[in-house]
Design a protein around this nucleic acid. Structure first.
Lengths: 153, 153
DNA sequence: GTGAAAATGAAAGTCAATTTCAAAAAGCAA
DNA sequence: TTGCTTTTTGAAATTGACTTTCATTTTCAC
């Protein structure tokens, strides 16, 4: 498992905070956190649980669930909803907010960032004297590969 | 209950289709549909059920639920999710797609439309060779009234 | 090591959404 | 109108993802 510097720092941060907020250093939790932060993917609890199980069969669904919620509370993970009733978690990239393209055929999730859209959102908010705390933008459709496949059919 | 022309037409359309797809003309369903289409609001099943109950106490939650699902299938209603785990339904305005501003304090839902944002979404899609079938954009925050109240506190 | 506090797993509970099924209503045909 | 078939309905049960409970295990400061 390749460890990238930024992510290691995030994990270290997490470790530093732990004592302050009364957390103990659990091996299982650490394994889950490392796996989750190093994989740059969107995981449902179920999905992460299934992958973790392969590495360490002694980790329960509850622990995976609780760890993801904990990371969310600590600001190291974000919860996403993509219209299928399943909550997914993604590692927070502190540097940049982003939105999502979701392929309805293969389920692929692509992240994108568009400053112009964000600016226009602020314009909309201003028009309605509204202050935006956060937003969700998801574009649903077909990714390039699935488009090719569909033509083939 | 004021009936606007466009909505009456939509209802008529619905009625026309009914026989073709094997639906019978139920009084209760008709009442629910009329109420839903004439109120230009976002309803959860629960909310619509509570309002309908006041008019006709003999209509059950199941019927309201099934009617809203039916309207969605027929393309006369859309399902929305605003990050609170509750599905809301809105009458489809055939003329225009729109997005939402949601006040996290009072729950108010404001609809808006911004062609520039839509255009930029297409640009994003093109960049990733993605074809968009539909999208969801929701801006969460505080509406003008709630901002005022908050200052007052 | 000992003891207090936190973490864990399995099972139970929650809650909105959805389905089931027996009874009621709709509507076609005689 | 009556009889018959199909659809609709209400109440209750079920589903499925999420969340909590609680007895047991692990952590860690002393």
């Amino acid at each position: 498992m390749k460890v990238n510097f930024k992510k290691q720092n995030r994990l270290k941060e997490f470790s530093k905070d732990k004592s302050k907020i009364g957390l103990k250093n659990s091996q299982k939790r650490t394994l889950i956190i490392e796996y989750f932060l190093h994989e740059d993917k969107h995981f449902s609890v179920e999905e992460l649980y299934n992958e973790i199980k392969k590495i360490s069969s002694e980790i329960s669904y509850s622990t995976v669930y609780r760890t993801l919620k904990l990371l969310t509370t600590c600001g190291l993970a974000d919860e996403c909803n993509f219209d299928d009733g399943i909550t997914r978690f993604e590692p927070v990239h502190k540097a940049q907010h982003h939105d999502h393209l979701i392929c309805k055929r293969c389920g692929k999730i692509i992240e994108f960032k568009n400053n112009e859209i964000e600016k226009l959102q602020q314009d909309v908010a201003k028009k309605y004297k509204f202050s935006i705390k956060f937003h969700r933008l998801a574009l649903y459709g077909l990714c390039s590969e699935c488009k090719k496949k569909q033509r083939g059919n």
